[in-house]
Amino acid sequence: MQRLGSLEAVVMQRLWDAPGPMTVREVMTELQAERSIAYTTAMTVLDHLTKKGMVVRTKQGRAFSYSPTRSREDRVAELMGQALAESANRDVALMRFVENMSTDEAAQLRKLLAETEAPGRPDRSAP
């Protein structure tokens, strides 16, 4: 999995929040409220994200537009999986994660686990 630099992460947040694909100029304009970046910087960041497989580039007239290749939630799940893979003991790491959840988050987790184990639900691990 590709790690993101700080500016790449900010650009991805904007792309995930956008209602549709964004051009380099739109990304640059969107970032202006937070930080001043040059058009070429925005273009370079989007090019890096394309090479990392995080965004797809589509020709729109004379410009390109960029869209995320996966959802924010898929990215977070991927990061969580990577963090677990780095642990020598996944069970302990998961336990620490659950212990640090709020009461509401733990209740939501129990609900999701119950839904996952519900009879008749397809097995996601099956090919």
Rank of each mutant, 00 (worst) to 15 (best):
M12F: 04
E117V: 05
K111R: 14
D47N: 13
D17H: 00
G120T: 14
G120P: 15
V45R: 06
S125I: 08
L94Q: 05
R110L: 15
M12S: 06
H48S: 15
M54H: 12
L31F: 11
D17P: 00
Q32T: 03
S71Y: 08
V27T: 06
E73N: 03
T58N: 04
D47M: 11
Q2P: 14
N89K: 00
S36H: 01
D74C: 11
V10C: 04
E115F: 14
A85F: 08
V56E: 10
L112R: 01
T23F: 00
L94Y: 04
R75H: 13
T58L: 02
D17I: 00
A114G: 12
M1I: 03
R3W: 07
M54R: 13
L79H: 07
K59R: 10
A63Y: 14
G20C: 02
S125C: 14
L112H: 05
S71P: 00
N100E: 12
R57V: 06
A88H: 07
F97R: 04
K59D: 00
S36D: 13
D91W: 10
Q2H: 03
P119G: 14
A88G: 07
G20E: 03
E73Q: 01
V98P: 01
V10L: 14
F64W: 01
A77C: 08
M95G: 00
E30I: 11
T58S: 09
S125R: 04
A63M: 12
E99Q: 04
E117P: 06
E115S: 12
L94T: 05
T103L: 02
D74S: 07
S102G: 11
L15K: 13
R35Q: 15
V27D: 10
H48T: 09
M22R: 11
W16A: 04
T23N: 11
R3M: 01
A83T: 12
V98D: 05
A118N: 07
E86N: 09
E26G: 12
Y39G: 04
H48M: 13
S102V: 02
A118K: 08
A85M: 04
G120N: 12
R25T: 13
A63L: 05
D91R: 04
R57L: 00
S102N: 07
L79F: 05
P19I: 00
A33T: 02
Y39N: 11
M28N: 08
A114T: 02
M54G: 01
S102L: 06
S87L: 02
R57D: 02
M22Q: 15
E105I: 11
L84Q: 01
L49W: 00
Q60H: 12
A77V: 11
G20P: 05
